[in-house]
Nucleic acid binder design. Structure first.
Length: 956
RNA sequence: GCAGGGGUGCCCGAGCCAGGUCAAAGGGGACAGGCUUAGGACCUGUUGGCGUAGGCCUACCAGGGUUCGAAUCCCUGCCCCUGCACCA
């Protein structure tokens, strides 16, 4: 049977037996969820890790006896699929290529992808198939889509709850917008300009003949250093009417501004040539500034008008230089006298710089002219420096001594409040091009709805919620902390996309991050609610079920059922673990806390969160849009899902980035094969069929190597269990697979010379069956299919998925036994080393063990606990452990340091340990090995070297 | 810039919070040996340097410090990664 066939067989059996369908019972519950997928593409191995972690944990906890609920749903709300459907309909080549070649959608299916609903249906059913192929222990009865009418009712309830608590408000909001499509656009809708931010600029009104020229700036504090204005004489300028004023801006700026301002219209063309040489009035200093020509002024950016601060802006400084050199241009506009008079003005004092940092930057970066590419670097560097470390200079009396960042905020406020300034948005980088080919703009959406994450009492409540949670790994708690404080109001409504309408303002759709914050509660009651009629699920229903409002519900659902639903919710809730990706801390996960703390009482708040790292493919970042992915379905096909699961869990801890490497995958595959063959080897040694269910380990084994293996496996169980409790899948596997295999390898190697002995052999078989019994169960959460198969084949009872998790037996873990084995292997290594140095093949090897008095001194040294030679000697003499005081002194000195290097666990009967291992030692060294209690034969006096744990060796 | 996380042997990566058992787990790769008709697989060993007795020297980004003792604690510097949203 191939791996896949075998895996499918068990998946079917699990399904038929319904062992992963969880209903409330008397056991302790454990409820965990992982972010439900947005099915806009095929599932790749990165997703594979995300969903395998909770499955491993769920399986582990189930074996420990918990009633575990692990559900799954489909987050189909949002805009991306709308865009995808449109692009498919338009036969956009890039999109077609990705879906054909990366997501591997067959031609005939692709044809139907012009329907967004079809896309999410297609991929969610594909996701489900793959999840089942991966063997996930999901309760599929609870599956749902976020556009199911009953779910939408639930979402309506939640948003109304928040609104009733005063946590929803109305306002305006800037977004990326495509004028061609007449729609807001997300990153995935863009041809160019992915991830580009929106900047807020301050417009400052400089009066000229009753109208205003309105340069835009990031640095309004530099208004005190203005020497002139810049216009680009080759650009079209216009005069517009806005809010009863007249502004002069570039034609392109108008195209942007029209999306941001109300009541705005063009009233005239303006010839920039005629403005040059004229004067404007500074609204703050009331000085007059001349208008000058400059080619660096970009009509597309902001208002297309720039004010000049040559003291602090490298561009302005160099443009002024250029102009001074360009006598032709100066003559054309008759500017010579005025320009020669212009001197930079200082505004900001910056450590390590003089009066005019812009000038120094121009020199430092060797900027030649205003079209030099290095100009941008110079500008950026100075901008950062002045923002971070600059202070407003003393002669600017209004703001003297203030840090630049602070002064900027205050000046901005003053300008805007007094009407001398205004606000405008623009992209941080350009171009930003929609997939339709249109140029995007920043648009202000009015009447937008916001969730008030800035609300202080709400933040405080959320912080409380966080503080009672377990966070894995603990290091990211600081991130949560930070985001909760940093988060401001969130625009929670959208114009486009699939989703639930705002109940009180149905022109808006609830944004998809806001409809997926408390849906774990929906899972808890999903088996019931899915059968109900959405019309019966009004707010009072949810109030009753989730918040236990006694009197409220008056609808059609009968009392008894209602109680059942409510009880089920109370059984599963609160959520024990929420798993999600690292990059969602800032929104999804934090919203999850916000919404729970606002809606639910404390005892229903989430108990824990686990965050995931990213996936790499042979060292490179995985990305569907770049085609750099391996589909999970294909990985399963080539390797089998147990191997895929094992690799994903073993190569990194969940919160670390994992790297899918074909080479390492091979290693994992071999390891798993070794494991599945192990049972066969045990059976062979045993000489007859193994029956795990009737097996019992009888009595203490005679040979220490067997005791050793029993001790080792119990250590591995202990460590693996602890690791899994903390979601450390990699560590758990290190213990339960890799290190345990090493132990077993060592064991096989060690016992081999003694296998002739039948009694010993049966002891070995008994030991190994014990190991096998534990080991299969230890591996089950990771590789459930192969474990079911082995369990079934070797007489385990029932499904191993339901078998009890192995308990480690603390009494079997024995430090002295471990130490004894270390002494033997250490001895073997030392013999080899000496052999190597002597460079000869020995005939006989004599081993001498340490005399009694040395052990006593070790006991004393262990008691003292520090390398304190004086005290060790004192105590040794007092106890009279040995006649020769000189020898004691020498020994004490020698071991003082030695003691800190070994883990002293007390006296060990080295003589019998070594005697037990003579066959092994002799095979390893290729010589006869003799061990002495007393040095009756010691021609070179080597026996004196013997230390506890380190017998002396004489080779001849 | 703000916030968070890091720099370990050929590569990946544990260890660091609770300093000594650390020349530093485990995996990958490389080399050697065993097994085998051969290859593969499997097992064993080697993979910083030196060494005619199990040892010594140098090492965990760099430089200082604390300590009997530091990969681990403290300070300084250099370098790298991630997030900063309205997008799931």
């Amino acid at each position: 049977m191939t791996d896949i066939k075998l895996e499918e067989k068990w998946q079917r059996k699990w399904q038929d037996a319904r062992i992963f369908q969880s209903d409330p019972d008397e056991r302790e519950k454990l409820f965990l969820t992982v972010a439900y997928p947005y099915p806009s593409g095929a599932m790749h191995i990165g997703h594979g890790r995300t969903y395998t972690v909770p499955d491993v944990y769920a399986r582990f906890k189930r074996m420990q006896g918990y009633n575990v609920l692990f559900p799954m749903g489909w987050h189909v709300t949002g805009a991306p699929v709308i865009g995808i459907a449109k692009r498919i309909a338009r036969q956009d080549p890039w999109t077609l290529n990705i879906y054909k070649n990366v997501h591997k959608v067959p031609e005939e299916e692709l044809a139907r992808f012009s329907d967004a609903n079809y896309i999410v249906d297609y991929f969610s059913s594909q996701y489900k198939d793959v999840m089942q192929q991966m063997g996930y222990s999901i309760d599929w009865r609870r599956e749902f889509k976020t556009i199911d009418p009953t779910y939408q009712k639930f979402i309506e309830w939640q948003i109304c709850k928040l609104r009733a608590k005063g946590l929803v408000r109305k306002g305006a909001h800037p977004v990326k917008y495509c004028p061609e499509c007449q729609n807001p656009v997300g990153d995935h809708d863009l041809l160019e300009g992915e991830g580009v931010g929106i900047n807020e600029l301050t417009l400052i009104k400089f009066e000229i003949d009753g109208a205003y020229l309105v340069p835009a700036t990031f640095r309004p504090e530099t208004i005190y250093g203005v020497t002139n204005l810049w216009l680009n004489p080759d650009v079209n300028y216009i005069k517009i009417e806005i809010q009863g004023e007249e502004w002069i801006i570039s034609r392109e700026a108008y195209d942007n501004l029209v999306h941001q301002k109300q009541d705005i219209k063009i009233i005239a063309e303006v010839d920039p040539q005629k403005l040059i040489g004229k004067y404007v009035k500074n609204p703050i200093t009331h000085e007059e500034h001349i208008i000058l020509p400059a080619s660096f002024v970009d009509p597309e950016y902001a208002s297309g008008v720039v004010y000049s601060v040559p003291g602090h802006a490298p561009a302005d400084y160099i443009a002024l230089q250029d102009l001074k050199k360009d006598s032709e241009l100066m003559k054309k506009y008759d500017l010579e006298d005025a320009v020669q008079k212009i001197r930079p003005l200082n505004v900001i004092t910056l450590k390590d710089f003089g009066e005019f940092p812009a000038e120094e930057m121009i020199q430092k970066f060797r900027v030649e002219n205003q079209d030099d590419t290095r100009l941008k670097e110079a500008t950026n560097e100075l901008y950062k420096l002045e923002h971070a470390k600059g202070v407003i200079s003393e002669h600017i009396t209004d703001y003297a001594g203030l840090p630049v960042a602070q002064a900027r905020d205050e000046i901005t406020k003053e300008l805007r409040d007094s009407g001398r300034g205004d606000i405008m948005y623009d992209f941080a980088e350009r171009p930003v091009i929609c997939r339709c080919g249109g140029k995007c703009v920043v648009r202000i959406l009015e009447d937008q709805w916001f969730l008030k994450y800035s609300d202080t009492p709400w933040k405080e409540l959320t912080m409380k919620c966080l503080s009672q949670m377990e966070i894995v790994p603990e290091e990211v708690r600081a991130n949560f902390d930070y985001y909760i404080n940093w988060l401001h109001d969130w625009a929670c409504s959208r114009r486009i996309g699939l989703g639930t309408k705002l109940p009180w303002d149905p022109q808006w759709i609830i944004e998809p991050l806001s409809d997926s914050t408390i849906y774990m509660a929906y899972y808890a009651i999903a088996t019931h609610i899915k059968k109900m009629n959405a019309a019966d699920l009004d707010d009072s229903f949810f109030d009753k079920v989730f918040l236990d409002k006694n009197d409220s519900y008056t609808g059609k659902i009968d009392e008894e059922l209602l109680k059942k639903v409510k009880d089920e919710f109370n059984y599963w809730y609160p959520l024990n673990w929420r798993l999600s990706a690292k990059d969602l801390i800032g929104n999804h996960l934090t919203f999850h806390l916000f919404h729970h703390s606002a809606i639910f009482p404390k005892n229903k708040w989430p108990k824990g969160a686990v965050v995931f790292g990213m996936g790499l493919l042979e060292g490179n970042k995985m990305s569907s849009s770049k085609g750099n992915v391996i589909l999970l379905s294909e990985a399963i096909e080539t390797h089998g899902s147990d191997v895929v699961r094992l690799f994903l869990m073993a190569s990194a801890e969940p919160w670390q980035d994992f790297d899918w490497r074909e080479n390492e995958l091979k290693g994992i595959k071999k390891r798993l094969e070794w494991f599945s063959e192990f049972a066969g080897r045990v059976e062979e040694l045993n000489g007859s069929k193994i029956d795990l269910k009737s097996y019992k380990l009888n009595s203490d084994p005679e040979k220490s190597i067997n005791t050793w293996l029993l001790s080792q496996i119990n250590i591995r169980v202990r460590e693996a269990t602890q690791a899994l409790e903390g979601f450390q899948t990699r560590k758990a596997l290190q213990e339960s697979l890799f290190l345990l295999k090493k132990d077993v390898d060592h064991y096989f190697y060690r016992i081999e010379p003694d296998l002739e002995d039948e009694k010993f052999k049966s002891e070995v078989a008994a030991t190994l069956i014990y190991v096998l019994n534990i080991w299969i169960r230890l591996m089950t959460p990771f590789t459930p299919h192969i474990c079911e198969e082995l369990w079934n084949k070797h007489g385990g009872s029932g499904f191993i998925s339901e078998a009890p998790w192995p308990q480690y037996d603390e009494t079997v873990i024995n430090e002295k036994v471990q130490k004894a084995e270390e002494i033997v292997t250490g001895l073997s290594e030392d013999i080899n080393e000496i052999k190597k140095i002597l460079n000869k093949e020995p005939e006989k090897i004599h081993i001498y063990i340490a005399p009694e008095w040395k052990w006593k001194i070790f006991d004393i040294a262990a008691e003292v606990g520090k390398p304190d030679i004086g005290r060790i000697m004192q105590e040794a003499i007092k106890q009279d452990v040995h006649q020769d005081k000189k020898e004691i002194a020498g020994f004490a000195k020698k071991i003082a340091r030695e003691m800190t290097k070994i883990n002293y666990v007390g006296k060990i009967d080295e003589y019998s340990v070594i005697k037990d291992s003579l066959e092994f030692l002799s095979r390893e060294s290729g010589a006869e090995v003799l061990v002495y209690k007393e040095p009756t034969y010691d021609p070179e006096g080597k026996s004196g070297n013997a230390l506890p744990y380190k017998p002396a060796i004489y080779i001849e």
